[in-house]
């Protein structure tokens, strides 16, 4: 070892000791700027397949605003009731009207309005309107069906098929503004908690079955083999076991080049069903929905 190397060794050793000493002393330590504070979080893994959503479905549409102008004090209903004796003959005219279909929808709306309605006619001194009013008064006493005639009667009174006219006189043209055809939709009763197999639930069920089939599905390979589609009919018992032998309903995508594989394709599909049996996680209360798996589709997409 030459003197130069000795010097080199000494210097190198000293340098390393110095460097690591400095590092150990925290000379180059970087303070941790991110105080990693991660509170524990609850994670629930749901692996059951639900066929239904139990939550009531809420309509996203707001209820239709009432646009009908309110005119006149409500007390006027009382005078309207006065002509009660007269109405007796009226019920007859009421039914005859040709019941134009559009007005009928408005019936429920129209019901609260009978009181203003009577007023106008009185002001305008039209002879006919009072009659419907008269009809309204007896209505509570008699049948509920009377509400309809009431709405219709103005139409009849004007002598036209349309209900427009009388409304013009009594309620203004925008009487039905907020209650158009669209407005009828939200008025349908909100669907009760789903009791049937909705499309989303059906998809979930299908996905679950496909998920269980997938590991056992080994499609044949070859020219155009990925175009083959085999549809099976499978019956399951309540435990998810296959009952009997799965049957091939149909085979699609058979071409000249993949004809040799078609038979293998079907056999592998049946084999996959048998291997996957029993199917788990299928909700027993919806056995009816998955009792027959028909059609059970096997294609290149399944093993993707």
């Amino acid at each position: 070892m030459e003197s130069a190397e000795k010097i080199g060794l000494g210097v190198a050793t000293a340098g390393h000791v110095l460097l690591f000493g400095l590092l150990s002393a925290g000379f180059l330590a970087t303070p941790n700027p991110l105080k990693l504070n991660s509170p524990p979080m609850d994670v629930s893994l749901i692996d059951e397949v639900a066929l239904e959503s139990m939550a009531p479905r809420l309509s996203t549409q707001p209820p239709p605003p009432s646009v009908a102008p309110e005119e006149g004090p409500t007390e006027d209903a009382a005078p309207a009731a006065l002509p009660e004796p007269a109405p007796a003959p009226e019920p007859e005219p009421a039914p005859p009207p040709k019941k134009p279909s559009p007005p009928r929808k408005d019936v429920p709306k129209a019901a609260p309005k009978p009181k203003p309605a009577p007023e106008k006619p009185a002001v305008k001194a039209k002879p006919t309107p009072p009659k419907p009013k008269a009809a309204a008064a007896p209505a509570p006493a008699q049948q509920k069906a009377k509400a309809k005639p009431k709405a219709d009667s103005p139409a009849r009174a004007s002598g036209e098929g349309k209900a427009q006219k009388p409304r013009g006189s009594m309620l203004g043209k925008d009487f039905l503004k907020g209650i158009d055809t669209e407005a009828d939709a939200p008025r349908k009763p909100a669907p009760a908690p789903a009791a049937t197999l909705g499309p989303a639930q059906k998809a979930a069920l299908d996905a679950e079955i496909r998920r269980q089939l997938k590991p056992h599905w080994r499609p044949p390979s070859g020219a155009d083999a990925d175009q083959l589609v085999t549809l099976l009919e499978v019956r399951l018992d309540k435990n998810g076991r296959v009952v009997g032998a799965p049957e091939v309903i149909e085979q699609r995508g058979v071409t000249a080049s993949n004809r040799p594989q078609a038979q293998i394709h079907a056999e592998r599909a049946i084999q996959a069903v048998k291997l996957a049996s029993p199917f788990r996680n299928l909700p027993p209360e919806f056995y009816e929905q998955w009792k027959w798996l028909r059609p059970l589709r096997f294609d290149a997409r399944l093993n993707r």
Partner: peptide, 21 residues
Amino acid sequence: LLLASIWTWAMIIGFTFTLRR
């Protein structure tokens, strides 16, 4: 590896001297 590093630097220093001289 630490010994290898020390040796490397010893050789670097020694070589530099020797070659330059």
